[in-house]
Design a binder for these strands. Structure first.
Lengths: 234, 234
DNA sequence: TTCATAGTTCGATGTTAATCGAAGCATCCG
DNA sequence: CGGATGCTTCGATTAACATCGAACTATGAA
């Protein structure tokens, strides 16, 4: 008598730690090889292979063969959405896999969390935007204010484009090191991507560290502090 | 080195068929007892008890004791959101737990799918609203048109209230019997609830069947067909 | 061809966890 | 006080599955 889509089957695929790690590594949108995903998940290549086979069979990821590499990507934006919602729930109920404190100071300062900015600078960005009332946060979550919309426009972020896929614009994400919120969601990701494009920052190759240039960091600071227009940064 | 919320832990809680059944039964918002949930999930009370203990420990559901009954509800709107996203994914990838064809014609005609209308009438509603351009569907999903917004207003649905919680207004849900889309999401649920309030239909006590009164069915038909104003139905 | 790299399959092992029967509490009713 | 109902705990069974070592396949490079 049970009808409808089989939620459990999909959820079970996301419900294994190794697989969840692989999938969150893929949220950035970049295609990763099986070996890279194995390392992300902290398992051996054999184990990863087995997990990836399941994820592919379940159409959670898609596979692109290229030479002797097999590149995996998420099969659609709905997977990102699911991961973010689950992330939000895990945050709310306090299920964090936080064990050790942050060691590397660079990591504590600015790093990538999925595809948005985390660390002290991530928290500063969140509170800065909130102080400038560009984002407003209530008990239901975060959203862009009208001022925030025009800010995004000025800053060169195509909000309409972002709205076109169903990923929510703004989400709160509890920061592991700072224990405060930073900004996730499509807008959070777009901001970080814009920082890259503007040359303010770049991502390290092997780690999650985000390195800001001196000039970039200064611009970033003004972005978070200044209540005045931001066009002079660009 | 792994940081951030523990997605896998939450997903694993949703990833068991028995638990998923219980949770989807709770999407309606009604509080259900352990025994009712056991029946929904098709397991014995002992098994249900064990599952419910896990769900409560994981803060997916909340418990309210009342006399010798224990009423369970979902712990927040984010759980509904998660279930709907997963439902969408399961639909997309074709993971349906459809086994037998629909037997009961009444069930095939109109039934409850989670908390919205499914069956032939559910499909008729979807295509009717689409034909009247009250909802528009593109590759990213469904949304209300401007005309749809004023329609909802006229029809007595508090859109602003719905928007206040984060559950998406419109979602497509593939119909089990008719193999076409019907309307899910907060708006889909609100429509069905409005049908109840208007006396057009009522839900059977023990099954998922939705029974329309003759008058109600006629009004419903006009709702789906007529391009003119709907105020005359009210 | 030979070697190295990327990835898979196979097989064995250990762990987790879902399930239900039986018995135990707790609450309400008469 | 029984006796019934709602639900949980205990214990045992079973099945699923995550994991990794070892061996195998496939692609590319020298």
């Amino acid at each position: 008598m049970k009808e409808g889509p089989d939620i459990a089957r999909v959820a079970a695929l996301l419900g294994d730690p190794a697989r969840a790690n692989m999938l969150t590594a893929l949220v950035s949108g970049r295609a990763l090889t099986a070996a890279e995903l194995a390392q992300e998940a902290g398992v051996t290549p054999q184990t990863a292979s087995s997990h990836l086979a399941k994820l592919e069979a379940g159409q959670i990821v898609t596979l692109r063969r290229q030479g002797r590499h097999r590149y995996f990507t998420l099969s659609g934006p709905d997977i990102v959405e699911a991961l973010e919602v689950l992330m939000g729930i895990a945050n709310r109920v306090g299920h964090n896999r936080v064990r050790t404190g942050p060691k590397d100071p660079a990591l504590r300062k600015a790093r990538v969390c999925y595809d948005h900015l985390a660390g002290e600078m991530g928290v500063a960005l969140f509170s800065g935007l909130a102080a400038r009332k560009l984002i407003v946060s209530d008990h239901n979550g975060v959203m862009l204010s009208d001022a925030g919309v025009s800010f995004a426009d000025e800053f060169g972020i195509d909000l309409d484009g972002l709205r076109r896929n169903r990923r929510p614009l703004c989400r709160e994400c509890l920061d592991w090191s700072a224990r405060q919120s930073h900004l996730a969601g499509a807008f959070g990701a777009a901001l970080l991507s814009r920082f890259y494009d503007l040359g303010w920052a770049r991502r390290s190759k092997d780690s999650r560290i985000v390195t800001f240039s001196p000039k970039g960091e200064q611009s970033f600071k003004s972005l978070c502090d200044a209540p005045e227009t931001i066009s002079r940064f660009l």
